[in-house]
Every structure is written in C-alpha cells, then in structure tokens.
Design a protein around this nucleic acid. Structure first.
Lengths: 351, 351
DNA sequence: TTGACGCTTTGGATCGTTCTAAAACGTGGG
DNA sequence: CCCACGTTTTAGAACGATCCAAAGCGTCAA
C-alpha cells in the first residue's frame, strides 16, 4: 500500500514521485507522454496518478516553459446576442485546441476596457481578441496590452493614431457590400425611392453601410433625397419614434435599407402607425439576421452575419498569429449573405 | 541612465530590482503597496516600473502563495440570451473583485462538459459556477472537479447520486412560485378554466412550474381538466402546432399559463388561426421576459427572471464560498417577478 | 561604549513544473 | 576485464513571484 494522498493540499508531481519511488522528472515525462520512459514504469506511475487523483498544474508548467495556454476575449457587450454567439464560436475553437478563454466584458466603457485589459494581461494570455468599446483610443489600448502580445481587432475600428496599432490583425464584417446587396435587391424589385434608415454616423459600421447604399444608388443612376437619410439610436424604440422623419421630404420613399434588424423591426411598427403595411405598401431590409427576423410579420429580408462562424474565425486567426508572429498584419473582411424574405416586396404601383 | 528593458523576454521583478539597485523583495513590497518601504525607495521603484513597462505576473504569484485569482464559468449554452446575460452579470462582479473569468461552453454535451471542466481545473480556479448540460451525472462531474474546489450549481439539477454532490451550493429560479403567481393573477382576473401549456415533463423546470400552477388552482378550489395539460417542445413552432390540443376536451379553457415566452408567442399564433384574439378572447402568460415579450401584439404578461442579476448573485455566492469554505452548503432560490401586460385580459363574459 | 529599538532592506528558500547534462544500468565486443 | 553503447532515470537549476528570519542602520537612553 502506498501513502495516502495529502490532505489540505493539492496533489503534486512530487507526491506521485514519492508514491511510486521514481523521480519527479520521470513523472513529468510520463505526464507528457514521452517515449523515453519504460513501459512498466509508465504503468506504475499512471496507476499512482489515478490513485492519488492528481491534477496537472498548468500554471506552474507555463511559468517554467515561458508559455501560455490562454487567450483573452474582451467584448464591448456580452449580453448582445451577436457577441454571445461570437463568444460561443471563439470558445468552441479554443477549447478544441487546448486553450482556455479568459473572458472580459466592458459594457461599452472605455475606462473599464482599459482596466479589464490590464487585469487580463497579468495572467499572460498568448493573445487577445478585442471588440473595442465605442470611442476606444489606439494609444491607450496599446499601452494597456504592451507591444508584445498579439491582438486581433474585431468588428470595430479604434480611433487615434493609426501607426500605434498597425501591427494588429483585424477582422471585420463586410458592411459596405452588405448594404450594397440589400440596396441592389430593392432596386431589382423595382424601387426607385429608397431610404437609408437608422444608425449613428459616429459608428464606423454605420458609415460603411451608408457607403454601400450610396454606391448602389449611384450605380443605378438613382438620386437620393436628403430626407431619406435618417439617423436614429440603433434600437427598436428610437426607430419607432424617428420613423416619421422619412416622410417629411417632398418625395416619400417606397422602401428603406435599415441599419440593422432592430431598427427595421421598429420601423415596421412605425409604418403600421401611419397605416402602411410593411411587405406590401413599403419594402424594407435589415442587417444581422437576429432570431426575430425570421418570425416577424412579415419575415424580414436581412443580411446574415453568422456571428458564431466569425467567432471561430477570430479564434483561428489569433491562434495562427500566436503560432507565428512574423507575417505582416492581416485585415480580414468576412462576407455577409443576403437572405430574401417577405419584407422586401416590389413597389405597389410599378414606376 | 538605467539599463534598457530586455528584448525578447518579459520584464520581471528582477529586472526592476537590478534597474534601481534594490532587492527583489523590496520591489515586491512596492508592488503590493506595503507600508514598510521608504517613501523615496518606493518612488524610485515606481519610476523604474513605468520606465521598463513592467507587467505583474499573477501566475507566478499565485504559484508561490498557493492562491488563485480565477473563477471558472461553465455554461450549457452561451448563445442563449438568458445565459449570455447571466455571464455578463458574473463577469461584472468578478471583474470588480479582481478575479478573472475562465469561460467554458459545453453546448449541452455532457461529454464536452467533462472535457471542459478537466481543462479548466488544470488552471486551478478558486471556484466553479456550473450550469450543467442536460443529463449531467453528479458522480462524473465530481470526479472531474475533485472534492476540493467549491462549485455552485446554477439553474439545473444534476442526475445521479445526491450524496455525491450534497456539498455543492445551488442557485435556482423560483419556478414553482412564478407559475403560481401567474395562475393566481389569471384567477384574479376572473378566469376559472385555466390551462397549463407547453414544456417537457422530462425537465425539472417544467415539473416545478406545473406544480406551481396546480397549487394555485387547488388553493382556489378550481378543477383541472386533463385536456388542459398539454406538453410541447418549448419553442414557437411546436407551440403553434399543438395549440389545438387545448380545445379537444369538453370544456374549453379561457386562459393558459405557458411554460415560457416562446411557447406563449407560438400559442398566440395558434389562437389567431382559430379566430381567437389573444388578450381579448383568451388570456395567456409566459415565463422569462425575453426581449420580444414587451413588443409582441398584445404585449405578453410574463415572469421576469433578470438573468444579469442572477449572474451577479452567482458570482457573489461563489466568492463567499471561496472566502470561507466552512459553512454548510446553501441552496438559494431566486425570486421571479410577475410583469402584467395586456395579454392577460379578464374573460370575455364574466363567469 | 553598549545595546535596545524602530524603521528598512535583504538573501535564500519555496511554490510545482520542466530542462539539461549526466549518471546508472545492462550488454556485448574486443 | 574494460569500455563503448543504447536505454532509462535522475539531481539540481531554472521560471517569477512571495515569505521568513535576520541583518543594516540611525538614534537614544543607560
């Protein structure tokens, strides 16, 4: 009978070594499946590991080997289903590769973002995936994470000195192309008076989506009335409230490309209040393909961004970079896919 | 001029010590804000820390002190908004207390759950918050996490030997009271023929909610027809499909307590198909207060479960347990709150 | 002069693992 | 009998921080 496992303390490699009369080094070799150890020794050690209920201490190993087995994931809003799906995708890939996810949620506060980054850095992650809070400054982030740990910027640009962060990788959605596809689709349905509704000009994604819209309109030779470009806070409530702005100009639009699904669903309510039936009297498109989009009345034409796939992709990008830091920084633009549903009807009386 | 920071290597406490001619011990004291160090020394050291861009290595400190600064958060479905909110709440509190969140997502697979727990354990978390996958076995979980690390079970029971896990803390929603409140509310509106619609009897939450419903019915002296207890898969689609079952018996219900919001929204569609207008011809309630509940037509009376608050609470519970492991395990039942909206109308002709 | 006493500072061991170089051991050829 | 050789095993120094006991130092009373 060997000794019993220690009581108040965790079982260490030395306990195992003592328990079956070999050196710590040998146990370590067994743990890492080295071919150097003799079959019988290995069996004896493995039995002892089981007997004492040994748990590997990866922190100690990482210290000695100067390695890391974690990736930090810092998100501006975990409660948002888009980012939740994204996080699930990230964790899926990281888990499969033996990395562990260090989570940090900033709640759109740049102050908290810096604090969270600082705290996570103390755990020495091998890399960082960051979806920055609005208004994040490149310089400050750089000084929080240091110049060494690889960082992948997701979904948003940061403001400030470009040179400060031009060695970061980037993963963005193809906002511009998405909005262009939606606009082209509405044009294809026969619409000529098409608005762009919702979003904040302060956000880079809104600017990109507007650019895609303008691009399609221009390419089709269609003019854009100023009253058709309406800003609103990108949630349902404000989208309802601002919807009448669309009809203040001299020509009323017959369709709208909306900044995102939440805004589109809000606009639907606003149209109802004006006596217009969306999907029959007025066509609209969203962006994101949230769960509700498929079951709204009418179902919403929108752009699928597959956040879980983006998460997986982000994880793979940062892992590549961790494995080999030498290649030049890379910017990846993820495709989005147009999902045509009933909300994007043709105009009622063809022009 | 001091030496320059090292190149390929991270800056360590020894670099700082060498850089300003003190011992490592002194630098360590400065880092931890000890009152022992002289004002001038402290200033010199702090200057050097800044100059070299020192980052604290918490893993090394944890190793030496035999402490931990992380909590593992293992969720069966991170993509579900309920758990995403929960995670955000957990991370909020943990971040404030200097802990870091180790994330693990199991995707409802018990196999993956064990793998994830094993991997996280190697990082030596101070505690674990676990929302188990369906069908998780107490024994297996216990052997994955060992008997030492505190564990908080959230939201779901695990199957198998109770004795195996009776030293775990628990945090559950008050399903029974929630359903009772909803039922009492409908009774208060004047309903007597009230159904319980949706959910799987296999799930513990469904059984608890049914129990709350029965409790209220019995207390009010109301009888329950067998045809009023209808099971369905808890999603919108199946809820539409099964809704006619409610009207197969000899007495048609005038109201229904639904298993959750998704089911309630599905039932609304089913009622429409029968020519009944929910909120006027038929009253119903949901459970969860998902985002759609407030904006459906009619807005849905439901039970708010405030997942973010639950997350905060879970974090506080596990931190308490980490701080002092001695008190006996505790089961916490979180209150749910009835939100009355237009869907729970009085019956059309008062009985 | 001595030593007792605060106030600071410090060397060295230590946490649990891995790495390196070398030792132990059996074996077979010269 | 000795040594070279392949196979296993090992002692001891790392990794970067903290803890402990003790030491340096200036001051002041005896």
């Amino acid at each position: 009978m060997g000794n019993t496992p220690p009581v108040g303390r965790k079982v260490t490699l030395s306990d195992i070594a003592a328990g079956c009369d070999v050196s710590r080094a040998t146990v370590s070799l067994v743990l890492r499946g080295s071919p150097l150890v003799n079959k019988h020794t290995r069996a004896r050690v493995e039995e002892e590991l089981r007997r004492q209920g040994y748990v590997y201490n990866r922190a100690a190993a990482n210290l000695r080997r100067r390695t890391s087995s974690s990736i930090a994931l810092v998100l501006n809003d975990l409660a948002n289903p888009f980012f939740a799906e994204f996080a699930a995708g990230v964790d899926e890939v990281l888990g499969d590769t033996g990395y562990v996810t260090l989570l940090g949620s900033t709640g759109e506060s740049t102050e908290r973002e810096l604090a969270v980054l600082g705290s996570l850095m103390e755990h020495g992650p091998a890399g960082i995936i960051l979806s920055p809070a609005e208004g994040s400054d490149a310089q400050q982030i750089l000084s929080a994470v240091g110049g060494v740990t690889p960082l992948l910027l997701f979904n948003r640009e940061v403001s400030g000195d470009v040179a400060a962060c031009d060695h970061w990788d980037r993963l963005f959605l193809d906002n511009q192309r998405g909005a262009r596809l939606a606009t082209e689709h509405l044009i294809g349905q026969g619409h000529q008076h098409i608005a762009f509704y919702g979003g904040h000009l302060g956000s880079s994604s809104c600017r990109q989506r507007r650019a895609g819209y303008m691009e399609a309109m221009k390419a089709a030779g269609l003019t854009v009335e100023p009253s058709w470009m309406v800003e609103c806070i990108p949630n349902r409530l404000d989208a309802v409230a601002q919807s009448e702005q669309l009809f203040k100009g001299k020509t009323a639009p017959t369709a709208a490309v909306c900044y995102n699904d939440a805004v589109a669903l809000g606009l639907m309510l606003g149209l109802h209040q004006r006596g217009l039936q969306p999907g029959r009297d007025f066509a609209l498109t969203g962006f994101d393909d949230i769960a509700e989009a498929a079951v709204s009345a009418p179902p919403l034409t929108t752009l699928a961004v597959t956040p879980r796939d983006r998460g997986r992709q982000a994880a793979e990008l940062i892992l590549q970079r961790v494995k080999d830091p030498s290649p030049p920084p890379r910017q990846t633009i993820a495709p989005v896919q147009l999902l045509v549903r009933a909300s994007s009807c043709p105009p009622q009386e063809p022009a």
